[in-house]
């Protein structure tokens, strides 16, 4: 059952990215181009998403299992460390270069965009490189979100 709800959640998430225009790298770059002709749309997307999600997380926080009986796995990490800062910096630079972040790149892949395939392949190589580097450090925790 959770596999089916996962599929639906991914689908609705993807539809949200398309409807909002966030699947389009040119629109993302329009937001990131503060000094040019600025498109603030992304802030409104985040506002709409956070408005709904914050209610859900307030409910989820009080529960130990989901409505379907799955374990409630919310992040517990709290420290703002070098990994978080450095990783987010690298991500932001990559985001600014092409206008793709992980979700929209997968949606664009579904549109059979050859450029999305190039981006996603490189992203998977980057993620795989991270796993290889982590494997050398047996005790370092991975905070997956």
């Amino acid at each position: 059952m959770t596999i089916f709800t996962s599929l639906i959640a991914g689908l609705v998430f993807g539809l949200g990215l398309i409807v909002s225009g966030m699947a389009n790298p040119a629109k993302i770059l329009g937001f990131l181009d503060l000094a040019g002709a600025w498109d603030p749309s992304l802030l409104f997307v985040m506002g709409g998403a956070v408005a709904v999600a914050s209610v859900a997380f307030a409910i989820a926080r009080k529960r130990t299992v989901s409505l379907l009986g799955a374990e409630m796995k919310l992040p517990t990490a709290r420290q703002i460390d070098r990994r978080l800062v450095g990783g987010s910096l690298l991500f932001g630079i990559g985001w600014g270069i092409a206008g793709f972040c992980p979700g929209p790149s997968l949606v664009a892949l579904g549109m059979a965009e050859p450029k999305a395939l190039v981006f996603v392949a490189a992203m998977l190589v980057g993620m795989g490189g991270f796993e290889l580097l982590e494997r050398r450090k047996p005790n370092s925790p991975i905070h997956a979100t």
Binding site: V45, G47, F57, A70
Partner: peptide
């Protein structure tokens, strides 16, 4: 359309945490 799409993303996020706990 930004708010409409954002609401859909919020709904997906909400159902994912409430149903799957993720």
């Amino acid at each position: 359309s930004a708010v409409a799409g954002g609401l859909l993303i919020g709904i997906a996020t909400a159902m994912f945490v409430l149903l799957n706990g993720r």
